[in-house]
Design a protein around this nucleic acid. Structure first.
Length: 254
DNA sequence: CCTGGGGGTAGGG
DNA sequence: CCCTACCCCCAGG
């Protein structure tokens, strides 16, 4: 009765994204408790964080294909429906064709973005690293065709302009960008070590592309320069180890 | 207690 | 009109 809609500010989204990258999605209370983010999120509850993240994740996919997914008369609209929690689709679906479950796609994309957000590799993360991250992120499901599905989703996201292909793998696309926010206090140093500039800034300015990804690029750059490089190198190390493990090599830790 | 999921609704194309 | 962004409620862990 008393509450009107309070739109999320970029600062709040920034804090949420950074919090997810730091603590992981699902640790809403932890993010809220973190002194790094609490000032920005003082007005928000952990439930708010969860809802916002859900909306954010949905908006990554959604739209665009809107009418395509209404092909099935059985499925009402789009939105979210039937949810096997965090379980991935059943193993080896009989029809290898397009089993386009919107819900499933959104889950994949959410996990992919979460992976890329966490191990923010400026050179891009390869499929193996992403696969391994997701595999660790969720416990149970390990579909055999998952790598294939993952590769498919990555290709799809690239063609949608959400991701871009790099030499080493994939990264979140940054276009249309950085000037929107322009952190006013960026006086720290002149480095701006991010490679954002070299990307061809061809205007993908689709409606649904909005500034979500751009904001993410900003947030990524901010975090990288603001916080640690130790984390970066550690993540790289972990990534290497992961790749080695994927090749079946035996890894010894010092 | 905290989290995930369902669902309602206002507001903007 | 439909779609998106927020918010509230409820069940399970």
């Amino acid at each position: 009765m008393g509450n009107q809609k309070q739109k999320w500010t970029p600062e709040e989204e920034d804090a949420l994204l950074a919090g997810v990258a730091k603590h992981g999605a699902g640790k809403w209370k932890n993010i809220l408790k973190d002194p790094e983010f609490s000032p920005s999120l003082i007005l928000r509850s952990n439930i708010d964080l969860k809802d916002k993240w859900r909306n954010l994740s949905s908006s990554i996919t959604s739209a665009q294909v809107t009418q395509e997914k209404m092909k099935n008369p059985m499925i009402k609209k789009s939105v979210r429906y039937a949810a096997p929690s965090l379980s991935l689709p059943s193993r080896t679906p009989p029809d290898a064709t397009v089993m386009d479950d919107t819900k499933t796609q959104e889950r994949y994309n959410t996990l992919i973005f979460e992976a890329l957000l966490t191990m923010k590799d400026p050179n891009g993360s390869d499929v193996g690293a992403i696969h391994n991250f997701i595999q660790q992120r969720i416990e149970e499901p390990v579909p055999h065709n998952f790598k294939r599905l993952l590769a498919g989703r990555l290709r799809s996201l690239v063609s949608l302009g959400k991701l871009e292909k790099t030499e080493n793998g994939f990264k979140i696309k940054n276009v249309t960008l950085l000037e929107i926010k322009t952190p006013s206090g960026l006086a720290t140093s002149s480095e701006t070590e991010d490679d954002a500039v070299h990307i061809t800034a061809y205007t993908v300015a689709d409606a649904e592309n909005k500034s979500f990804l751009a904001a993410e690029a900003v947030k990524e750059a901010e975090r990288v320069s603001k916080i640690a490089e130790e984390t970066e190198s550690m993540l790289l190390l972990v990534k290497e180890i992961n790749e080695q493990c994927l090749r079946g090599e035996v890894v010894h830790l010092a």
